[in-house]
């Protein structure tokens, strides 16, 4: 899965600690494939008590349509290990999440599926959030590991070099593991 530069308006949800239960509630984890979860993305937050869409929720606003970047608060994706959170975000159309920090399992899951977790320094993140909330388009460039928005110098981020290589070159982690099959076989000799 190749990951090119992403240019898009942003959906902004700057609250901290958005957990994977909020991203995709457990009642939508009953499937046996990865598809169709976008319509339930942030289900509990998107709808009011009576089940109708909350027009003020960022994802429901007219200008959110087509956005490919989510700007989120610190510790995004904490909680459950469900990869469904990544599938749901991607199915809705999100290709990059920009936050000050990410939870470990979410970050790993995202990188495996080609959803880019972009961790910005706090000061950069605040600057970016202001621009994004003013509907300015943002460019996320994995190759250069930078985020661009008009009127500001490029903001740097870092992705694990191996994961970056996988995303840019379309390299496959399972394929990499298979390449070490003989070492794995040797390791397993003499173990229970």
């Amino acid at each position: 899965m190749r990951c090119e530069a992403i240019v898009s308006r942003c959906v902004c949800m700057p609250a901290a600690n958005i957990d994977t239960d909020q991203i995709i509630p457990a009642r939508f984890l009953r499937g046996v494939d990865c598809h169709g979860l976008g319509e339930h993305l942030f289900d509990g937050l998107r709808r009011r008590r009576d089940g109708t869409p909350d027009p003020y929720f960022p994802l429901n606003r007219a200008d959110a349509r087509g956005a490919r970047i989510l700007v989120a608060g610190r510790n995004f994706g904490c909680g459950s290990s469900r990869e469904h959170a990544v599938w749901a975000l991607m199915d809705w159309g999100i290709r990059a999440v920009i936050a000050p920090t990410f939870a470990d399992i979410f970050r790993a899951n995202a990188l495996k599926k080609g959803l880019l977790p972009v961790a910005l320094a706090e000061a950069d993140w605040i600057r970016l959030l202001q621009s994004a909330e003013a509907s300015q388009p943002v460019r996320v460039d994995l190759n250069a590991e930078t985020v661009h928005v008009a009127g500001h110098p490029a903001m740097a981020f870092a992705v694990d070099p191996f994961a970056r290589r996988c995303l840019l070159e379309g390299m496959d982690e399972l394929g990499y593991l298979l390449g070490h099959l003989s070492a794995i076989e040797a390791f397993e000799q003499g173990r229970p």
Partner: peptide
């Protein structure tokens, strides 16, 4: 430790994970 479904596939297939 907990892992996502992609990693579940890795362990099923190879009994190994790529980890820092």
């Amino acid at each position: 430790f907990g892992i996502g479904t992609s990693e579940v596939a890795h362990v099923l297939a190879m009994q190994c994970l790529l980890q820092h």
